[in-house]
Design a protein around this nucleic acid. Structure first.
Lengths: 199, 199
DNA sequence: TCCTGCGCTAAACGACTGTTTAACATCCGT
DNA sequence: ACGGATGTTAAACAGTCGTTTAGCGCAGGA
């Protein structure tokens, strides 16, 4: 009967390579640089091969987001085990690579609704994990969750750290020093003093 | 001698129309949708006419950013006259249109360096104006500018409000309520209680 | 009336895009 | 050694794109 189009397996080495290239292009030249033919050229491969692994360009983007999301959720889980949780969350959301990719994905999601749905779903999962960890963390320190709701902290820490990272990346740093000082002061009120140097 | 290519004037009605269309496209479909031919089609006009007003596609983008920047600086100047400055700044940066365009421009600036320079220059001017207004505002209220540096406030307010607006636009609202409450509490500490209803 | 300049277009150049269809080469299990 | 699956390609279809060159039609001033 209908042989519904042959497709490469999800765990293929080549498939990974293609995703790596797509991610690199997205970072270096923006999402508009990511296309079937461009990725193919960069991988020294034919456009048709891209379609062998990803039915369509949208599928490529979705696969890219999914891979990224899982990597990030895993890394975040590690970050949530830190003894100074707020600082750890701040640092985690300040990785330039992640912040830059986020901007691209958001812009991309403006006209690819499948992408948007995937992005939101990931963000919601991440936020829930952070909420849970923060709730435990605050409780253990005897802080009233009514005065400082974990979800609010999650949102504020991630948005501010990501925004600053992004601005840094584009060479806009006015006021960062002052903002960082204010934030640090606040984080320390909850996390306590920094751990002593271990040299 | 060399007649260096005829060009339309900067104050032309048509030119404005073209910029309007480009801006609309950017909002609705992302920056990748903005192109010579697409704008021309949308304006029911020939591609050549776009080149008559904008030497190149990059020039179109630059003109778009400049117009936007000037509009925003003007609107911001009005916002800075408010009696409750922090709330006013928060509201000003929460306009969906501005926030969405910002994301697009930032993504665009990833591979158009002229765009990036223009963006940063605008942001720096805006930040300086806010710094000045905030410094006066805080001084008038007897608040120590060492404890709460105006620049830090500028950065935090604009990044958080923009981020929340952007998340709203894409349907991600987890934790917004809680974050807003926390922010509002903080803003009120400085701005004072909200003005009584005038009905 | 003629002329100049302005707003705009027609037509083409060369290059790029996503996608499909058919088929080639190679390796594996039988 | 043969048959089938796997990874990959060649070639084409039907679009899109930015840009340039030459020239049209019509206004206002001389």
């Amino acid at each position: 009967m209908s042989s519904p189009r042959r497709m490469g397996p999800e765990n293929s080495k080549t498939r990974f390579l293609l995703l790596d290239i797509a991610e690199r292009l997205m970072l270096e030249e923006g999402y508009a640089a990511v296309g079937i033919r461009r990725v193919a050229r960069e991988a020294d491969v034919t456009p048709a091969l891209i379609h062998y692994y990803f039915r369509t360009l949208d599928d490529l983007f979705l696969a890219l987001i999914r891979r990224r999301s899982e990597q990030e959720l895993e890394a975040q889980t590690r970050a949530l085990e830190s003894g100074r949780l707020l600082h750890s969350l701040w640092a985690y959301n300040s990785h330039p690579r992640g912040a830059a990719l986020n901007v691209e994905f958001i812009a991309l999601s403006n006209h690819r609704k499948a992408v948007r749905a995937e992005l939101v779903s990931y963000a919601e999962r991440a936020r829930e994990l952070q909420r849970e960890a923060l709730a435990n963390y605050l409780r253990a320190r005897g802080i009233d969750p009514e005065a400082i709701p974990p979800l609010a902290l999650t949102v504020l820490i991630s948005t501010v750290s990501r925004a600053l990272t992004m601005e840094d990346a584009m060479g806009l740093t006015v006021g960062h020093e002052e903002a960082l000082a204010l934030v640090e002061e606040y984080l320390q009120k909850i996390d306590g003093a920094p751990a002593p140097e271990t040299d």
